[in-house]
Amino acid sequence: MKLCERLAAEAAGTAWLVFVGCASTALNSSAPTQGWNVFEMAAAFGLAQAVAAYACGRISSAHFNPAVTIGYAIAGRFRTREVAPYIAAQNAGAIVGAALLAAVASGRPGFAFAVSDFGSNGYGEHSPCEYVPSAVFAVELAMTFAFALLHLVMSTSAQRRRTAPAALGACLAAAYLIAIPVSNGGLNPARSTGPALFVGEWALDQLWLFWAAPMLGAIAAGFFLRVVLRRGG
C-alpha cells in the first residue's frame, strides 16, 4: 500500500475510535449508574477498535495510536521515517472524530463543554475517582504496555494477524475497565488530544501525562519484544 493510503486508513480508524468511544459518555444524558457507565465506555472503545482493525488492518496495520506506532518502531517492526506521518495522521483523525462528536453533542439542549468532560482524561479532581497524578501515570503506563505488547505480538505471524482485531478489541476493553475509574481511560495520546482540544483549560493542562505515560509504556513494550525475539532467534 502507498503511504498516503495507509495514512488515510490511520486517520479514519482513529476518528472512528474517538467518536464511538467518547460518544458513549458524551451523548448519554441519563443519570450515571454505578459500574454501568464504565462498562459501556469500555465496550464502546473495545468494539470500535475491533471494527476499525478489521477494516484497516491489511492497509495500515491498524495502529490508531501514536504510542503503538512508537512501540513498533522501537521493536524494529516499523520504518522510522514513517513514524511522524503516522502520528500526524492519527492526531488529525482524533480531532476530526472529536469535532464530529462536538457537533452532535451540541445539539442537546443544555450541553456545555465546561460541564461535560466530553470523554477527556484527567487526574486529581478531574479523575473520575479523584486519583492522584502518580496513580494515573502508573495505570496509563501499565495498561498501554500491555496493549502495545499484545499489538506487537499479534503482528509476528500471519495466523495471529487474522485474529488480531478481536484480540485487540478485547484487550482494549479490559484495559479500559481498569483505567476508566482512574483516568477516564486514555492509553492513546491521540484519543486524549482530540477531546482535550474542545474542553480546553484543565484538559489541555493535564494532557502532558496522557502523552508521557502511554509513550513510555509502549517504548517499554517495544524493547521487551525486541529482547524476547532476539533471544528466541
Rank of each mutant, 00 (worst) to 15 (best):
3 L>D: 13
5 E>C: 12
6 R>I: 07
8 A>Y: 13
9 A>K: 14
11 A>H: 01
14 T>Q: 09
17 L>I: 05
23 A>K: 01
24 S>P: 12
26 A>H: 00
29 S>D: 12
33 T>S: 07
33 T>I: 10
37 N>S: 11
38 V>A: 02
39 F>D: 00
40 E>K: 01
42 A>G: 09
46 G>C: 07
47 L>T: 13
47 L>G: 06
51 V>Q: 02
51 V>M: 04
55 A>I: 06
56 C>W: 05
57 G>D: 14
59 I>Y: 11
62 A>S: 15
62 A>H: 02
62 A>I: 14
63 H>W: 12
66 P>Y: 08
67 A>E: 09
70 I>T: 15
70 I>E: 09
70 I>M: 13
70 I>G: 11
71 G>H: 15
71 G>F: 15
73 A>P: 14
73 A>H: 09
77 R>G: 08
79 R>T: 11
79 R>C: 11
82 E>L: 10
82 E>Y: 10
82 E>H: 12
83 V>Y: 13
83 V>N: 10
83 V>C: 09
87 I>Q: 09
90 Q>N: 10
90 Q>Y: 14
94 A>N: 06
97 G>L: 07
99 A>I: 09
103 A>P: 04
103 A>K: 08
104 V>A: 09
109 P>L: 01
109 P>F: 05
111 F>H: 03
115 V>Y: 00
115 V>T: 14
117 D>G: 02
118 F>C: 01
119 G>D: 05
120 S>F: 00
120 S>D: 00
122 G>C: 00
124 G>A: 03
124 G>P: 07
126 H>Q: 03
127 S>Y: 06
130 E>S: 11
130 E>W: 05
139 V>Q: 06
141 L>D: 01
142 A>L: 10
142 A>W: 03
143 M>H: 09
143 M>R: 09
144 T>R: 04
146 A>C: 14
148 A>S: 15
148 A>F: 08
150 L>F: 15
151 H>A: 14
152 L>D: 13
152 L>S: 12
156 T>Y: 08
156 T>Q: 14
157 S>C: 11
157 S>F: 00
159 Q>K: 15
159 Q>V: 13
159 Q>W: 07
160 R>P: 13
168 L>G: 11
171 C>Q: 01
172 L>I: 07
172 L>M: 02
176 Y>E: 06
181 P>Y: 01
182 V>C: 07
184 N>C: 05
184 N>S: 12
184 N>E: 03
186 G>F: 03
186 G>C: 13
188 N>Q: 06
188 N>M: 02
189 P>F: 13
191 R>K: 06
192 S>I: 04
194 G>Q: 06
196 A>R: 03
197 L>H: 03
198 F>A: 04
200 G>C: 04
201 E>A: 15
205 D>L: 02
209 L>N: 04
210 F>C: 01
213 A>Q: 05
213 A>E: 02
218 A>N: 12
218 A>S: 15
219 I>A: 15
221 A>S: 14
221 A>D: 11
221 A>I: 08
221 A>L: 10
223 F>T: 14
223 F>P: 05
224 F>H: 13
225 L>N: 11
227 V>M: 10
230 R>L: 07
